[in-house]
Design a protein around this nucleic acid. Structure first.
Lengths: 132, 132
DNA sequence: GTAATTGCAAAGCATTTGCAGTAAG
DNA sequence: CTTACTGCAAATGCTTTGCAATTAC
């Protein structure tokens, strides 16, 4: 039982290409709209399946937005994000401190391992601030 | 148009009481199950509405679990969380570094303000580690 | 050729909402 | 009394999934 082979379909390459081209951290549905300009018959399910696949193999990053739709980032370099608490829009942020190391942790109950950390910021984006 | 008055209903007080009593960062549905032991006729909608209200007034904290169900914390003291990437379980963590200050931020496009930050950790909880 | 992947449509879940009835103050 | 809040059930929104038809390799 070796790992199944993977195929670079047109859909997959266009999704990856478009996600890398833009900087807006789109939702699956937004990316679906963008990709449909080039592949009018693609389905939303295919977009979701390919985003899952691309996250799995580390080509893109899935951004956790609490309660809101997930967003995706084609830029896998180390950086942090600010999320607008009103509309969910996400922007990149350059934060000068190093990512918190897992070494400093003092107390955790019932966890076997901790291997990643992330700093997240909350804010209000310009359009939402103007809209009140 | 003054702010509407608020009423301390039995449902609201039991929800808050039970959430403060446990340390498991339950989902709305899990808390619904717990609260139903004392209020068998309560509805899930009421649990959601009260959790929203309690978050709004700052009595409890809503924890953003990416894509998964939201979890709630009756402990509003400053602490961080580890989330199990397999089952979503959340544990408290005592992290010694100060929360990142918003002052150090160097670059943000299109954001009017940034006012909160949070460190999150990913891990694998004991039960999931054992389960493989 | 074979099986990974697709499009489509239906299903799944967490959460929200409309409404008539209930109860807190 | 007044109106915030409740239970119920239906609706919403995002994401996943089953299946027969494609298509990459």
């Amino acid at each position: 039982m070796s790992a199944p082979e993977t195929r670079m379909t047109r859909q997959r390459s266009v999704i990856l290409e478009e996600l890398r081209k833009i900087r807006s951290h789109p939702t699956a549905d937004e990316l679906y709209g963008i990709v449909r300009n080039r592949l009018p018959r693609i389905s939303l399910g295919t977009v979701y399946r390919n985003l899952d696949f691309l996250v799995e193999v580390g080509e893109i990053v899935r951004l956790s937005s609490a309660g809101h739709a997930m967003r995706f980032d084609g830029d896998i370099s180390r950086h942090q994000h600010v999320r607008c608490i009103h509309c969910g829009r996400i922007a990149d942020i350059v934060y000068p401190l190093p990512a918190p190391s897992v070494d400093g942790i003092q107390e955790v109950e019932d966890f076997a391992s901790i291997f990643a950390s992330r700093i997240e910021f909350d804010g209000v984006c310009q359009p939402c601030a103007v809209a009140g």
